[in-house]
Every structure is written in structure tokens, then in C-alpha cells.
Design a protein around this nucleic acid. Structure first.
Lengths: 345, 345
DNA sequence: TTGACGAATGACAGCGCTGTCATTCATGCT
DNA sequence: AGCATGAATGACAGCGCTGTCATTCGTCAA
């Protein structure tokens, strides 16, 4: 069996030394031509490039990593891939990678701090080019690990306390507060909050909602949440719950757009006039919000740039020109008022 | 600078030999205990495990890869991460990975066959544990590379010609054909097709639509497509286009659910009664289709299992129990008739 | 002219692990 | 008792590349 495998593996696997031989230089020069072309004379470089092309040489990243003690991989640690928000962020991350030779290694914590800590430990042990982690609620041990990391560490999703190293995100608290303030400004008197998958970001949005209510002197705690993952049909159900419990509700701030769409459908089903009778405000401003009928108000966030910027923070550090430790980029949010929160219409 | 880095890197980086020392065995035995515990006596294994735990040893995958000529990484090659369908598939892939020590390396072709070929070449050169590629329209050179690969290769998304090695997917042609047949069976006389981002799968869905029309003796070519990426708002626009060009249209088969939702909203905006006046059928059956008002008919596909199954095909091969070369798994599809294609309602 | 200097290149060793083959030792059979 | 057998373990070398330091050579100021 060893023999069979050996034979099958015997396709022309070109090594650096073979390229060196063909280009009539030493292996180390080829290595340099690849890593740091400026340190190699133009003639040598030309010969090397030709040899690489002719032989179809592809570098072996494992050997590179072993010899140099570094990898060209950015570790990304998020709670879950089944969350639309993180899907958008991942998209941004992959976009940010374009034009670099970097790769990403993805780990999911499933909302467990212990798993997160283990992932951080494992990722760091592989000396990644950088680490991107979601949120800033890491366990003390995890924070210590990240603080001692020799690579750039970017905390994404939120702005808040000073970052361990770098961060890019937005204030979910203020985003939600802007949403509820908008509802109140539009004249709604009894707004409620609908939330699913109550991760730390959602919790802070809820806090922003409560803060906005309190600031307006409104009492009660008109909140319906569930730990279930968010979905459109869940939005339908949550609205049903809410109206059963608190019929006087005249507006809802949804933890995200999926729920808002669900609320819209459920309202249509019940012949509730969205806008005049029931205000709806989502969160994130997914593309479909503006296409809906009526168009749905939402708090726009830029998940795509979040991912992109995080990667670029790492890339900039790699080229030496990066932002200093402690730099936090606030991407902000933008309230997009639409027909779903217009009381006359 | 070398010194500084050296110092910073000097956190207790435990190697296999140190574990071996602590467990009073040779390094090779530790290696075996990790890779193939059955080959190590229970006592030795216990000591080794304790040492690993106490020292906090984390294996170095680069060294492992270099020494063994294999990696624990599955390469995944898809056209784009910005496509909802692939997002679902990726989710399935990550789910399929759970409980294994496998990782994934993702590459995107941006629908370029040349890029795809290069990616395949680069990925294969790293001796991945397996390769998952989207579709079966690879260039001849790419097919040759895949055919000669020493690792399992899974083509996902579609069933069709015999796979290079393994495949899991469904027939987009027949799925779309089932959709149009349903529309015709419901009594719609002038169905049209709306498509965006016309990748090979979309093309085959369109072919299925045309085939279904032809089989019913219906002529014309009521098709509106665009190469733009799909979105809800695009669905709105495409319906507007379609109605302008072909006012007699009484039903639409949408290339995917986003478009169908857009069509629904646009119809609502124009006070067209969805179902009686205009039938709508989507593709994929995203969760929101059943929550919509009216609920939307769709051709259900299981993107999640597709990803999961693909990974498991690789994993099974790794344990020796895998399906033989040529095995193709047809996940099928399921028409989900709902209110949006009920002519009386 | 001479020495100093920097650019270009090379020799060497080793990163941490595993494949291969060799060795040891207890077991069961004739 | 003697031998083959297989389980458990170990020695050795090397995977492909890069960090470090050394060497060569041409250039320029004194």
C-alpha cells in the first residue's frame, strides 16, 4: 500500500531547489525572489520567474510555515456560520483578502466561551498572520491569550471598551436607541422589542431600546425574546405572541431584518395596516427591506465593510503601516426611515 | 528586531518530544498515540494524554503536513461567497466538519474557468484531505487535474454526467420542469421565467422551464434574465420588465426565492392578486417562503445536506469506508405548493 | 591606490513531525 | 523446548523551506 501511494503521488512535484537548479541560482535566492523580490537582482529574478513558470512550481505552505514559524492564514473566530450577519461579515472578509496571498481559517464557538478560548489557543499556536474575533465578551483567559498574541488581533462587530489590539464595529446600543427614538418621534406611543438569538449584540440592542423608552418616560417592559435562531417565520410567531400579550402595541423594533419581514407578513395576514396601525423597524437594513411593500424602516449597518476593514487592519499591520494598538474604528449606523414607520400614508 | 521577535515568541511552545519526555516514551509513540491510538498500549496512552494536558501541547499542523505529505484540510472551490445558495452550502460543509479535526480552505472562482483551474492546481499541490468543487462544468484541464488527484473529489450542486470521482446534488433541469408543470397543472396559461446571475445551474433551470413549456405545446419564449446577482429588488424590477413586455403573463417561475419575494412585493404594489391573478413559484424553498403572505410555492432543495454530505463523502473515504469512484448522490427536490399558485383562493 | 561599505548571493542547520524499518518481548503452537 | 507470530516501541532520516551568518564583488571617498 505504501508503494501504491508512493507511485500515485509521483506526479512532478517541483521543489524550490529544482527551480533554483533551472534558474542557475541557489535555493535561497529563489526563496528570496518569492518573499522579497527587491533583494534579488533583476536578471536573477527574471530567470527565476521563467523557471517557476516553466516548471509549474507551487510553493509548499507547510514547509514555509514550519521553517519560518509563521503562516499566511488569518484566523477568524465567530459564534456560528448559520447567522446571516456573520455570513455577510465573512463575505466582507473574503473580499478583503483579494489580491493577497492570505487565507482564512474559520472557527465557530457556538456561543460557548470555553470553545472560544480553546479555538484561540489552537489558532494562536499556529502563528497566524492575524486573528479576527467576534465581539468583546471574551473570557479573561481568552483576553489574556489575545493580549499576549504576537499577531494583530481585530475584534469585530462592536465598539465599546478599549480593544485588546484593534477593533471595528458599531454601537448596537445606540443603533437600537436611534430606532426607538425614531418610532417615538413618528408618534408611536407603545413600541415593543422583538428579539431572537439573544447574543451579546442583541442584548445591547435590547438595552438601547429600554434606554430609549425610559428616556421618553415610557414604562412597562414590552419585550418578547427567544434564544431560538432568528428567522422570518419566527418573526411571525413573535408578533402573534406580542399582540396576544400586549394588544395596545403600535410599533415594533425588531432585533434584525428577518424578524421584521416576518412581522410584516404576519401583519398583512391579520389585515393590520403597516405604518398607520403598526410601525415596524428592523436592524441591519438588508437589501430586501427597501424592496418590501410597504418598504421597511431599518437601522442600516455595514457588515461587508466590517469584514473588509478587519482584514485590511491585519494586512496593514503586515506591511508595517498598520494602526497602533488600541485603535477602534466605529463604522456607525444609519437610520433608514421608510413607509413602515409612517403613521399617515 | 530578530531578537525582539524571538523574545516575544518565547512563550512555552511545547513540542511533541517534550511531551514524550514527560510521558517517558519516545516521540514516535506520542505521534502514534495522536494519530492511531489503537497502536499504543493503554498505559502509555494514559501517560501521554496526561502529559499533553498538563503541558498544554498543541500539535503543529505545518510540521505534520510537511512530514506526512498530507493535510487535514478540505479544499472548497465555489464561484462566489456572495451567493445565498453557496452560503447555505458552506454552512452545511461546516456542519459536516464537526467532530473531525478537518479544516476547510475556501477558494472562489468568480465564475472564471481559468481561476478555477489555477485554484485546483494550487489546492491539489497542498495534498488536501479532499476537494469539493461546485458544478460539473470544469475546463478539460481542470477535469484532468481532478481526475488524477490522489484525494477524494466531490462535485456538488448538480447531478448529471458521471462524476469525476464523487458527486452530490440535484437536477436543476427537472426541478424547474416540476415547477412549470405545477404552474400549468394549476391552470396558468402563460407562465414566464425570471432569472438572475445566470450560472450553469440557472441555465439548466431555464432549460427545464423551456422543456416544460414545449411539452405543453406552449410557444414563445417568455423569459427575462440578467447576469446581475440576484436580489429581492431585482425581482421587483424583473417583474416590471416582464409585465411591460408581456402583459398576458399569468405566472412566473423564478430562478430563486429572492426573485420570487421581489415579485411578490412588486405584485402587491401593483394590486395584483398573487395566486388568482399571478402565480409565483420560487426555487430552493428558503424558510421565508412559507412565512410569506400569501405563502409562496417553491421547489425545495436541500443545500445544507448537500454540504454536509459532500464532507461526509470525504470523511468516509478517509476512514476507508467510502463510496467507490463514480458514485453520485441525487438529493432530489420537492415541489412545495402553496397559496401563491392557487388560482382560486 | 586603498580601505570601507553595501548589494547580491550562498552555506548551513534546523523548524516539528512522521514513514520506514528494526527491535523487543510475551504468547501460543507443535 | 523451540519456533513463529504479532503487539508495542524505538532509531533514523528527511519532508521543503527559511533565518542566520558568511562570503564575494563592485563602487566610492579619502
Amino acid at each position: 500500500m505504501g508503494i501504491i501511494i508512493r507511485i500515485m503521488n509521483d506526479k512532478p512535484k517541483i521543489t524550490l531547489s529544482e527551480v533554483a537548479l533551472a534558474a542557475d541560482v541557489s535555493p535561497i535566492t529563489v526563496s528570496r525572489a518569492l518573499r522579497n523580490p527587491a533583494k534579488v537582482s533583476a536578471e536573477a529574478r527574471a530567470r527565476i520567474e521563467r523557471a517557476i513558470h516553466e516548471l509549474g512550481y507551487v510553493p509548499n505552505p507547510a514547509a514555509r510555515a514550519l521553517a519560518s514559524g509563521r503562516t499566511d492564514v488569518i484566523g477568524v473566530i465567530i459564534p456560528s456560520v448559520s447567522n446571516n450577519v456573520f455570513a455577510d461579515v465573512m463575505r466582507g472578509i473574503y473580499e478583503g483578502l483579494e489580491g493577497s496571498s492570505l487565507g482564512v481559517q474559520l472557527g465557530t464557538t457556538r456561543y460557548s466561551p470555553l470553545t472560544e478560548e480553546q479555538l484561540i489557543r489552537v489558532f494562536l499556536s499556529q502563528r497566524p498572520a492575524g486573528l479576527i474575533v467576534a465581539g468583546h465578551d471574551q473570557s479573561p483567559a481568552a483576553r489574556a491569550l489575545l493580549g499576549a498574541a504576537v499577531c494583530p488581533v481585530v475584534q469585530i462587530m462592536e465598539v465599546g471598551p478599549p480593544p485588546i489590539d484593534l477593533s471595528v464595529g458599531l454601537s448596537h446600543f445606540h443603533g437600537a436607541r436611534a430606532g426607538v427614538e425614531h418610532l417615538l418621534a413618528q408618534g408611536y406611543r407603545a413600541p415593543a422589542f422583538l428579539g431572537a438569538q439573544m447574543d451579546p449584540r442583541s442584548q445591547r440592542r435590547l438595552a438601547g431600546f429600554r434606554d430609549g423608552l425610559a428616556a421618553a418616560g415610557l414604562g412597562g417592559d414590552p419585550v418578547v425574546t427567544t434564544p431560538e435562531p432568528s428567522s422570518v417565520s419566527l418573526g411571525c410567531r413573535l408578533l402573534a405572541d406580542l399582540l396576544a400579550r400586549r394588544p395596545q402595541t403600535d410599533a415594533v423594533l425588531c432585533n434584525n431584518d428577518d424578524l421584521a419581514i416576518g412581522v410584516l407578513f404576519e401583519a398583512q395576514r391579520r389585515n393590520i395596516r403597516v405604518g398607520p396601525q403598526l410601525g415596524i423597524c428592523g436592524f441591519n437594513d438588508h437589501e430586501m427591506m427597501s424592496a418590501a411593500e410597504p418598504a421597511l424602516t431599518s437601522v442600516a449597518t455595514d457588515r461587508l465593510s466590517m469584514g473588509r476593514q478587519a482584514v485590511h487592519m491585519v494586512r496593514d499591520r503586515l506591511t508595517g503601516a498598520g494602526a497602533p494598538r488600541g485603535h477602534a474604528l466605529d463604522l456607525g449606523f444609519r437610520l433608514m426611515p421608510r413607509a413602515s414607520t409612517a403613521r399617515e400614508g
